[in-house]
Design a protein around this nucleic acid. Structure first.
Lengths: 127, 127
DNA sequence: TCATTGATTCCAGAATTATGGAAATATAGC
DNA sequence: GCTATATTTCCATAATTCTGGAATCAATGA
């Protein structure tokens, strides 16, 4: 990922509502969640949410598919992975105090959880 | 790191000039770089750069110290580490396709480089 | 075809962020 | 104290982003 895409991704996530949407979609996993359901969850007007989903889509962080009358959004994990790798290389290069703890988190992976009090139990992964 | 700090960090990095400044400071390492030198490197007017450095400082991503007439800025790696961990937990939870490659990068650490053609040789780290 | 539901687009006003000229502040050397 | 250098603050303008009402589009079912 070059810095232009990274910038798009960062900008997309750098807003409260959009970060919430993204976090919700991460929880929802590959099956995703319908726009309306997201709107209900986060109490955002449909048209406002739509604009925010467009920003996330343009950054390639999420992906839409139609299912009946609903449009289902799901995270594109490859993009998020690439963004994380970009940032890690940018700030890790030469600095063990960043690399090491991050590696540990990534290895332990999901078992760590998000720290939210309302979080759902983590699934097993990262063999 | 809670989402408010993460948001600050993301916003700070979500701008072309600021991302460049940050990347430059990462390269510069703990010794940091004087504001004027940054400005010369990136061809940004001093006062504009100053505003951008303020944003990065407020997000705690960089730290200033005075040295004679110069003010030296250096990356705060703990903050960047926390931001990366926040993002990793947010998007890695349950998804090996994100965790695994990221863990590998973090373990190999700096040896990977940034991919830029003008990058300096990576230093050894991450034993 | 018509009504309903789910979602988007259009648009304009509000809010925030970015930029840089001019003036001010801080340090150093003479 | 005076001058030069390094940087910041003040301030106004420009640019961008955010928000939501109203209208529109798409799919479903009767």
């Amino acid at each position: 990922m070059e810095s232009e895409s990274a910038l798009k991704g960062l900008s997309a996530l750098a807003q409260e509502a959009r970060l919430s949407v993204f976090r919700l979609l991460v929880k929802a996993g590959p099956e995703g969640m319908a726009a309306g359901e997201i709107a209900r969850h986060l109490a955002i007007p449909a048209n406002t949410l739509s604009a925010q989903l467009t920003v996330l889509s343009n950054a390639d962080l999420i992906q839409a598919r139609r299912e009946g009358r609903s449009i289902i959004y799901a995270v594109r994990f490859e993009t998020m992975r690439d963004l994380l790798i970009f940032l890690t290389r940018d700030c890790c290069a030469g600095h063990a105090e960043v690399c090491a703890p991050l590696a540990e988190i990534a290895l332990r992976g999901c078992s760590a959880g998000t720290g939210d009090k309302d979080e759902t139990p983590a699934r097993s992964c990262c063999s």
